[in-house]
Write a protein that binds this DNA or RNA. Structure first.
Lengths: 132, 132
DNA sequence: TGATTTCCTACCATTTTGGTAGTAAAATAA
DNA sequence: TTATTTTACTACCAAAATGGTAGGAAATCA
């Protein structure tokens, strides 16, 4: 029952970018890596998964890096976590591909589904601007 | 971000016992194993961890098995899950042993702590009698 | 042109998950 | 007393997930 370092570090990256949104510059992973004490190579891998669908602005080369594409209030923790960790499913039996043949009448299933909803609602209620 | 089969199967066992609480008999793991299609040996291992501090009544030998010690309404899903899976900590940084030196002023930490609270509150609000 | 930085792919050690196997101990039935 | 049943306990193990590392290609700018 854990969010892995992928999700945790993803949020750290995004908070770092959000705190510097007003500076309006590209921020390198090297900077984040040094300030947060996380391996550069690992951050690279994580931010690539966050950045699918151009969730961020990025630029290569010197003076390059990453920055938020829009105001921190438009970034939901839910999106950050699902982009880095995949969809939230608190048990394997919540996945559509899981087939035990008794979902509808399974009281465990309903419980896990409700818990999943509670978690998703919480994460959807939080945006980056609330965290900085 | 998953509850493992330990916790899932633990709840299945407990719901099975709760549904038969009125029969007032010891129920064998063999019966649960066959009805729920889960390996007997694995269920044995799981129920041992649930049964610490005599959470259940158990008896060896023929006519033996397990039964609830008290009414289903006194069994909280939270206890079932923590006994089978260990304490709920949605990130490793919530563990007391984790020391990054900035918990108090870390906004990620507060977020994860709040999420953890939401999950714990949910699980503490559910008892076995609501599930049967 | 050289330095910088993202982008992309492949690999790998360690830990966790999801079990299996075997046996001892207790309780009951025959 | 003996055989059977069932929990209780300990050890082991394969497969998957986690948490990275490594190397290089492709942009971009000074």
């Amino acid at each position: 029952m854990k969010i892995s370092t992928k999700g945790r570090y993803a949020l750290i990256i995004m908070i770092y970018l959000a705190q510097r949104y007003n500076e309006n510059r590209y921020i390198t992973l090297k900077e984040i890596s040094e300030k947060e004490g996380i391996s550069l190579k690992y951050l690279e891998k994580i931010i690539v998964s966050i950045n699918k669908d151009n969730y961020l602005l990025s630029q290569r080369g010197s003076e390059g890096g990453y920055k938020l594409a829009t105001d921190p209030k438009n970034y939901y923790v839910y999106d950050i976590i699902t982009k880095s960790e995949g969809n939230i499913a608190v048990t394997t039996c919540l996945n559509a591909s899981f087939n035990c043949g008794k979902k509808a009448k399974c009281s465990s299933y309903r419980l896990w589904n409700d818990l999943n909803g509670v978690i998703i609602d919480f994460l959807k209620s939080k945006t980056l601007d609330e965290l900085i």
